[in-house]
């Protein structure tokens, strides 16, 4: 399971945790997150996220 970070505000999407408060169940791969998903902390779109290297 990977982590993706918003390049604008640093919010992290952890595939294992999902984002249940945004309607994304745990275990949802980033590719499967809807295209209109926006960062809950700052509002930028999926295109402004990058995968975090562990």
């Amino acid at each position: 399971m990977k982590k993706w970070q918003c390049v604008v505000c640093g919010w992290i999407y952890d595939e294992a945790e999902g984002a249940p408060e945004e309607g994304i169940p745990p275990g949802t791969a980033w590719d499967d997150v809807p295209d209109d998903f926006i960062c809950p902390d700052c509002g930028v779109g999926k295109e402004d996220f990058e995968m975090v290297e562990i």
Binding site: V8, C9, I38, D41, C42, G43, V44
Partner: peptide, 8 residues
């Protein structure tokens, strides 16, 4: 002065 309102 924040990003959320700017994006909206």
């Amino acid at each position: 002065l924040y990003v959320l309102p700017l994006m909206a």
